[in-house]
């Protein structure tokens, strides 16, 4: 399946991927409205890790055998036929069991009062995930790499 991969040699840690991830998961999908008008601004599903000159964007790997789906106590997490690991946010209770078992540390939490996880859904329905299409350096790519 196509997955998102980081190319750390091109990442400058600008965090535009995080910004556009938020936009892509907002109601309007408009950057100004998302940040200035909409009350429930979603949390980014991608995180940029940075230490000096080293930085890269990281999100769910959509594992073939996802530990998080096995572990989910509510049935909120599932893997669909395309292979995307999805979270039904209505069912998530914020027990953090998935975070406890995700071998990549790739699951994020909603900030503030909402006690739920958020995770990358590969921007279902979009030709390319927002983080990928808005990265100015092509430091995030969306491609089929198969088994290396």
């Amino acid at each position: 399946m196509k997955r998102i991969y980081a190319r750390e040699e091109y990442c400058v840690g600008c965090r535009l991927c995080e910004i556009f991830c938020v936009v892509g998961h907002s109601k309007s999908k408009d950057i100004i409205k998302t940040y200035k008008k909409e009350p429930d601004r979603p949390a980014p599903r991608v995180a940029v890790w940075e230490d000096g000159p080293l930085s890269f964007a990281f999100q769910c790997r959509h594992c073939d055998q996802p530990s998080c789906v096995e572990a989910c106590i509510t049935g909120a997490l599932s893997k669909n036929e395309e292979g995307t690991v999805l979270c039904n946010e209505d069912k998530c209770v914020g027990c953090w069991t998935c975070i406890t078992v995700c071998p990549f540390g790739a699951i994020q939490r909603e900030e503030g009062e909402k006690k739920k996880i958020v995770k990358c859904n590969l921007c279902s329905g979009e030709p390319e995930p927002y983080c990928v299409s808005h990265c100015p350096n092509r430091a995030i790519v969306y491609e089929e790499r198969g088994v290396e």
């Binding site: 399946m1 991969y5 990281f58 790997r61 594992c63 073939d64 096995e70 071998p103």
Partner: peptide, 15 residues
């Protein structure tokens, strides 16, 4: 190894 993830590394399954 972690950054590649996905196909190349079998998820260890949960404990």
């Amino acid at each position: 190894d972690r950054m590649r993830g996905g196909e190349t590394i079998e998820s260890p399954g949960c404990a």
